[in-house]
């Protein structure tokens, strides 16, 4: 009864003091959040309905930026296609690659920790270095791969110089740098109860059966996690294409974030860029919801 009375009256003075102290301690984060996340987030929504170039006062244009993006800007649809292509192929392939790599590295092989280090290494290489290394490897004239082909008297492969090959090449690089996802998978694989495999062995299951019916289902929560993180990254893919191809050749690697950045900081179109940012935000949210909805059908949670 006393507790009920207290609940009705709200906090006690001691609880208020604690709350104040707690808020005081987290105030640096709160301040940062409101200044650097909340305010810019809603400013961008405001500016998406304005003609705004960062230098002159914003002018209200209603939905004009959105209409322009969808109906007048021919580059937008190519950019959307490029991004969906990368997200649709690159991210699942990246997750599959990381999962398979983790599975291999989870087996009892000689020098396992060395291999784990080698496969994780690309994840800690800065993007600028990654771009330069792959530039040297894939270059059509002097790249290591093409130099080998040239040496063998074979025609070169224009990996990042051909519009048709540029996106797959970037996906290849993306797959190469899956160290983080691989480590997460590795931790999950080590957590799969041995007893399940032993029971399956007793039941006469072979390696494929165990992988298909035990390993994959037990790892589905982490597959979902890596997919969600991967898709968000995929939609915002910027650094590597910016450094490696600059959006070319012929706009083949002009991804959404590059296009957004170009509009904001090069074409002086911050209003349009804000609208692009909100479209991207909505797409990512919808995509994530869709993924979580679908997860009910394929993700297995052991605790349920």
């Amino acid at each position: 009864m006393a507790a009920l009375t207290q609940k009705r009256r709200g906090f006690t003075s001691a609880q208020w003091r604690d709350l104040r102290t707690g808020l005081f301690f987290i105030s640096p984060w709160l301040l940062g959040f409101f200044l650097w996340t909340f305010y810019p987030l809603f400013s961008s929504l405001y500016y998406s309905f304005h003609r705004y170039d960062l230098l002159r006062p914003a002018v209200w244009v209603g939905l004009k930026n959105y209409v322009e993006i969808f109906t007048k800007d021919p580059t937008f649809w190519q950019v959307a296609y490029n991004t969906v292509y990368f997200v649709g192929f690159g991210i699942p392939l990246g997750v599959i690659g990381a999962f398979l790599m983790a599975t291999l590295l989870n087996t009892e092989i000689k020098g396992r920790s060395v291999f784990r280090t080698i496969f994780f290494f690309p994840a800690i290489v800065p993007a600028i270095v990654t771009a330069m290394v792959w530039q040297y490897l894939l270059n059509v004239q002097y790249g290591a791969i093409n130099a080998f082909l040239q040496g063998a008297g074979l025609p070169v492969i224009p990996f990042i110089a051909n519009p048709g090959l540029a996106k797959p090449s970037l996906i290849l690089i993306h797959m190469w740098a899956q160290g983080n996802a691989m480590v997460i998978f590795l931790a999950t694989l080590q957590d799969v109860p041995r007893s399940l495999y032993e029971a399956a062995t007793v039941d006469g299951a072979n390696a494929w059966h165990k992988f298909r019916n035990i390993t994959i289902p037990m790892c589905t929560p982490v597959i979902l996690f890596n997919l969600v993180i991967g898709f968000i990254y995929g939609f915002q893919n910027f650094t590597l294409p910016w450094l490696l191809t600059g959006g070319g050749p012929n706009n083949a690697t002009e991804f959404y974030s590059l296009f957004l950045y170009r509009n904001a900081f090069i074409f002086f179109r911050m209003g349009k860029a804000s609208a692009l940012a909100w479209i991207l935000f909505i797409v990512i949210v919808l995509f994530t919801i869709l993924l979580f909805r679908s997860s009910r059908r394929w993700v297995y949670y052991g605790g349920e």
């Binding site: 040297y136 270059n139 059509v140 004239q141 002097y142 070169v156 224009p158 110089a161 070319g248 050749p249």
Partner: peptide, 12 residues
């Protein structure tokens, strides 16, 4: 060849 020209430009 556009790819060749693009490749030439991509050389450091």
């Amino acid at each position: 060849g556009p790819d060749n020209m693009a490749g030439m430009r991509q050389v450091e």
